[in-house]
Amino acid sequence: MFIFALANQKGGVGKTTTAVTLASGFAQAGLKTLLVDLDPQGHVAFSFGQEKTAGLYRWLVMEEPIKDVVQTVRPNLDILPSDKNTEKVKRHITLMDFRESLLKDHFKRLKYDVVFLDLAPSLDVLHINGLITSDWVIIPTRLDAMAVDGVKEILLTMGEIGQKGHQFTGYSILPTFFDRTTRETITQFQEIVQTFGERVLPPIPQDTRVREAPAFGQTLWEYTPNSPAITGYQNGKSKAGGYQQICERLMEVVYG
């Protein structure tokens, strides 16, 4: 089982969109996939046209079996939803010993090929749990003036976790809301590439269709498979960016 976390303390950078799109992409490719919502906003269930539930709370706090709390939303794809009860999960964790590994310990019993954790934009105990559970952290970021700083913050947190003995296999930075015509995007893209080099994945184009898909309870693969957010840019003879290419890159991560 390989576990990805989608993390950035900054809000609205495309964490949930990326988690939903990659998880459904991996499921389509035939991997048994679980998508876990660690955010009380509960947007993951909404993205599949489902009601939010207390799935995460029931699994972690009530100790119910995983099969009773997940929803199978597509072939090969289960989601473990969140709702406001996820706030109670945080309180529960805070009162525990070994509080930082509660989530990780629960995963030992699961049988999925790949798991995606959609983290909330906050640096709380559940966020730390999510990072500690993961093998690979994907850091979506917009290319605005604070982009590099936001990424560095996450890396700092990962560094602290590393000192406590958790080994990450690696991490990637995913530029989102990419608009290749604006000077700001170019400048920030250069900066982020200078700073993080090969860690930088090809970007996800800004694409209004992305915003519409959740309202129809559809993934991007279903709602708009030929839009730039999926297919990326045509760059000369080759393609650059888009979720299709990101799936391919991360497939290489999983299979080495």
Partner: peptide
Amino acid sequence: KRRNILDPAVADLLAGME
């Protein structure tokens, strides 16, 4: 040197934009 070890799609895209 840095660019030699970039993701090839990132390197192409950046070069085109520049």
